[in-house]
Every structure is written in C-alpha cells, then in structure tokens.
C-alpha cells in the first residue's frame, strides 16, 4: 500500500516539476509580490514534501482498523 502511494507520488512529482506544467506558470506576472513561476515552484515543492512526509510517516495503512458506524441511541 505504502509502496504504491510512494510510486504514485513520484509520478506526480515528475508531472509537477516538468514541462508542460511549468510552462503554465512561466508568465511575467507577480502574485503577492512574487514571480508566478518562483511562487509555484516553491509552493508545489513544499506541498510535495508535506505529502511525502504524510505518506512515509503514516503507520502501515493495512494496520488501521476500519471503524464501524456508531451505535444508534436506544430509548
């Protein structure tokens, strides 16, 4: 499970940090005083690392038991 998520993330990274996605942000405008491409690269980078940390540090997915619905109150 973890293995598959990691491979999926690798593919996502390849898409995020490559042509043609980058060309979408390669424009001469400024957002919050920052060039769009610069902003995009670092935001995407940060998001990627955050996702990575979530996947890697997560306990083995299979180990988490599914919780059933709460027992309805009886009167």
């Amino acid at each position: 499970m973890k293995r598959q998520r990691l491979i999926a993330l690798f593919v996502l990274g390849f898409l995020l940090f490559n042509y043609p996605v980058l060309s979408l942000f390669s424009v001469e405008s400024v957002v919050l005083g920052l060039p769009v491409l610069y902003l995009y690269l670092f935001c995407a980078w940060g998001g990627f690392v955050w996702l990575l940390s979530r996947i890697v540090d997560a306990p083995e997915a299979s180990a988490s038991p599914r919780r059933g619905p709460a027992v309805p109150p009886t009167d």
Binding site: K2, R3, L6, I7, L9, F10, G13, F14, F17, L41, W45, F48, V49, L52, I55, V56
Partner: peptide
C-alpha cells in the same frame, strides 16, 4: 528538484 522527485522511491 530531481532528488526531491526521487525521494518517494528512496523507501524502495
């Protein structure tokens, strides 16, 4: 960015 993209596969 290369090492970053590859990082997920480090686990493997």
């Amino acid at each position: 960015l290369g090492p970053t993209i590859l990082a997920p596969l480090w686990w493997l």
